[in-house]
Design a protein around this nucleic acid. Structure first.
Length: 583
DNA sequence: GCCGTTTTCGGCCCGACTGTTTTCAGTCG
């Protein structure tokens, strides 16, 4: 069994950490870390790039790292890594992951006290053995004790839906303060990442101190990680970290640009700024003269908007969702940024549930709610019978439902249309949960995996291919079945599935539920590149879930998706004509 | 270790906060 991209990515991340602990050249270990981050988000298996001879076309992958990837794929092992592991205990990496402990401290504890595990460190700290080490003291020791306790609260990254909710609540509190002129969410929430490491909030004000004071003393704060005149960090009771930055109005553009990230995007933007004769930070563009000296403050160029920042360095504004150093800067230079899809482009929802299965509203109520949200047409797609706990429909109930759908459609008038479909289970043996003659009577069929998600790749792929090759199936719902943070993706041969979808003109869904966001952006980007149609659906079981559409839009925009590739942007007439043409 | 219409060698973004220091290293983002 070949190593997965993520397993190989993890190895490079570990190598980066180990080299850093060893005190290796900074740019060297950063290269490994960058490679690790990149490999974890590729849309195809690494073996496919090896076969194509395109491995070193991936940014940040040069000769040394590509050779190591090949060695890992061929032998499942890496000599370089094994040697490193013999020198640096791997458990040190868990110590380095403790907030406030970096490579230097981890090495110090190891060298001086022989500490290699978090348990060892906790014991040493509680016994007061750390405070006498060079550069340490009682406060540092206590901080480590607190951070180790926090480890159990803080379980990695937070799904964007949860993080956004927490961020909005804090934002509302801040905006209510008299000193706050404006406050916005920046960071990875603004970029629309599916999971969030920490929440970044930027506030505009000339009077930061009372804002900081309020921020760190909010009732939901578990502990204060740092508090300064312009920047503070807190940890919430949920374990989520929130950073607040306060800057005056005239610096809002540079500050928002800086605070939105990503880090890789910003590094490149700052390099471009340098080439244009400016050193860029969150405060201003600072001119540099021909001798390389920075001019004094009177020459600083302040930017009140992000557009200003990009314009001053010769670029068009780049949408936050694109700022991952995935080619967006090159596209901006060439004037080839995509015309990104927006929520206003979406006219329909092609995947939603009602009280006929596990939804909370009737067909009529869902239709009205969709109309209130600016849609012109929907497809009712309740579960099929295999989903017993969801009260899935058998053929008889499904056809019974059709009468009600037709009635509601008639009631809704000429300017709103309700079509009848189903979200049909793709069964574990690869067969469909409803017979062809029943499917043929429906307007639109979404086929989804709900069970047997841990089957091997060949089986999962066979099931998906059977659905795609069924002439009645129009769309594959939430393809990998993942639930972010709680259930991993099914093991799919994406290349095979994409090839079949293209050939049969089957639509692939971006499910907007923030717990799913499936397809994820790296796959959706490839789907668009291949010319396969996309749908962005809410999979709503209630009106509340209809309002989750923005998460699907964010994911699509991160995938560089343009409205022309998404069938939810089509008018009813166009969609209906396409359905008819499929027979 | 990666990368290149200014370079195949010599660069590789920039700052805030903390705690331990008498001016700065470490950590984080």
């Amino acid at each position: 069994m070949a190593l997965t991209n993520q397993e190989i990515a993890d190895i490079f991340n570990n190598i980066a950490d180990m080299l850093e602990i060893q005190g290796e050249n900074r740019f060297k270990f950063l290269s490994y870390r960058r490679a690790g981050e990149t490999l974890g988000e590729l849309p195809r298996d690494l073996q496919a790039y090896v076969d194509d001879g395109t491995l070193t076309d991936i940014p940040g992958i040069g000769k040394a790292i590509s050779d190591k990837i090949k060695e890992l794929l061929e032998t499942n092992k890496l000599e370089f890594y094994e040697k490193l592991r013999a020198q640096v205990p791997e458990s040190l990496l868990e110590i380095k992951a403790i907030n406030g402990v970096g490579p230097k401290k981890a090495k110090l504890f190891w060298d001086e006290l022989g500490i290699t595990t978090v348990t060892d460190l906790q014991k040493a700290a509680s016994e007061g053995k750390l405070r006498d080490l060079a550069g340490m003291g009682a406060k540092s020791e206590q901080k480590i004790i607190d951070s180790i306790q926090a480890l159990s609260r803080n379980r990695g990254r937070t799904p964007i839906g949860n993080a956004k909710q927490a961020a909005d609540a804090i934002l509302a509190e801040l905006v209510a303060l008299p000193q706050v002129e404006e406050a916005v969410i920046a960071g990875s929430i603004r970029r629309g990442r599916t999971t969030i490491g920490d929440v970044d909030i930027l506030a505009v004000s000339d009077e930061a101190e009372p804002i900081m004071e309020h921020f760190v003393s909010m009732s939901r704060v578990e502990r204060i990680l740092g508090q300064g005149p312009t920047k503070s960090s807190i940890e919430l009771r949920t374990g989520l970290q929130v950073d607040l930055r306060v800057l005056p109005r005239e610096r809002f553009g540079t500050a928002l640009q800086y605070f939105t990230g990503s880090k890789d995007h910003n590094v490149k933007i700052r390099e471009i700024a340098l080439n244009k004769g400016f050193s860029l930070n969150e405060h201003a563009l600072r001119p540099i003269d021909d001798a390389g000296n920075m001019l004094d403050e009177s020459h600083y160029v302040y930017c009140g908007t992000e557009e200003d920042v990009y314009e001053k360095i010769g670029l068009p504004w780049i949408a936050p969702e694109l700022r991952e150093d995935q080619g967006e800067i090159e596209a901006a230079i060439e004037g080839k940024l995509p015309n990104l899809i927006t929520a206003e482009d979406i006219l329909s929802d092609l995947h939603m549930h009602t009280t006929w299965s596990d939804g909370t509203l009737s067909i009529g109520e869902m239709a009205e709610a969709a109309r209130e949200r600016g849609k012109t047409h929907i497809v009712i797609t309740d579960h099929s019978k295999r989903s017993v706990v969801a009260n899935g429909l058998d053929a008889n109930r499904l056809l019974e439902q059709q009468a009600e759908v037709r009635a509601v459609d008639a009631e809704m008038g000429e300017d709103f249309h309700v079509l009848h479909g189903v979200e049909m289970d793709i069964l574990e043996d690869g067969s469909m949960d409803l017979p062809d003659d029943v499917l043929a009577q429906l307007d639109f069929v979404v086929a989804s995996l709900h069970f047997g998600l841990t089957q091997d790749r060949a089986t999962i792929t066979m099931r998906l291919l059977n659905a795609i090759n069924n002439p009645h199936v129009d769309c594959i719902g939430h393809m990998t079945g993942r639930l972010i943070g709680s259930r991993p993706s099914a093991d799919v041969d994406f290349d095979a599935v994409f090839e079949a979808a293209l050939k049969t003109d089957t639509v692939l869904e971006i499910n907007a539920n923030p717990a799913r966001l499936d397809l994820d952006s790296q796959y959706a980007r490839r789907v668009q590149q291949l010319g396969i149609k996309l749908a962005i659906n809410t999979d709503a079981h209630s009106t509340k879930m209809m309002d989750m559409l923005p998460y699907g839009i964010l994911t699509a925009r991160r995938a560089w998706v343009e409205p022309t590739h998404v069938i939810n942007t089509w008018s009813f007439d166009r969609l209906y004509a396409w359905i008819q043409s499929r027979g």
